[in-house]
């Protein structure tokens, strides 16, 4: 199974992921409509592309009173069934990462990363490898060892 991998250290803050995402989903070049947001943290000199992590135990899904959020297990992606969604925004307040979004021009309309149905445009456009969509190996060692591997890779 492929997974979206985020490596903030490689992000140069060019925003192309946001522009591509906005265009792909809303036909508009406006970062305000993107499912991914690059957030600059000045104190760490780090720009983090924030995007749905497709949690194993998703708070958004637990917060939803109508079961409108479901797991699309073909691509391991949490999706919104708009027929069931009542626009209560519970999922928006439930997500601890702020990755469930609401449309400012359509009150009650929520949206999130849908992994572009298995070919995420943000990863396709990322020029530095900060966002990639790749086959992942199952974890073999401890979390610390895995982190060391990533550190060694991105420097």
């Amino acid at each position: 199974m492929k997974q979206l991998i985020i490596k903030p250290k490689l992000c140069t803050n060019c925003h192309i992921c946001e522009l591509a995402c906005s265009f792909k989903h809303s036909m508009e070049f406006d970062l305000a409509h993107s499912r991914v947001k690059t957030i600059f943290h000045a104190e760490d000199d780090l720009t983090v592309p924030e995007i749905c992590l497709q949690c194993i135990d998703p708070s958004c899904m637990k917060g939803c009173p109508t079961g409108a959020l479901y797991l699309d297990d073909r691509i391991n992606c949490i999706r919104v069934n708009y027929d069931s969604c009542i626009g209560c925004l519970s999922c928006v307040v439930s997500c601890p990462f702020g990755n469930m979004l609401q449309d400012r021009s359509k009150p009650g309309h929520v949206y999130k990363c849908d992994l572009c149905d298995g070919d995420p445009v943000c990863a396709r456009f990322c020029p530095t490898g900060a966002l990639t969509y790749v086959e992942i190996e199952p974890l073999t060692g401890s979390v610390e060892m895995e982190l060391e591997k990533v550190e060694a890779e991105v420097g």
């Binding site: 140069t12 803050n13 060019c14 925003h15 192309i16 522009l19 720009t47 020029p127 530095t128």
Partner: peptide, 9 residues
């Protein structure tokens, strides 16, 4: 760092 939509940075 880069400007908007930049592939160079």
């Amino acid at each position: 760092i880069s400007c908007h939509s930049c592939v160079v940075h």
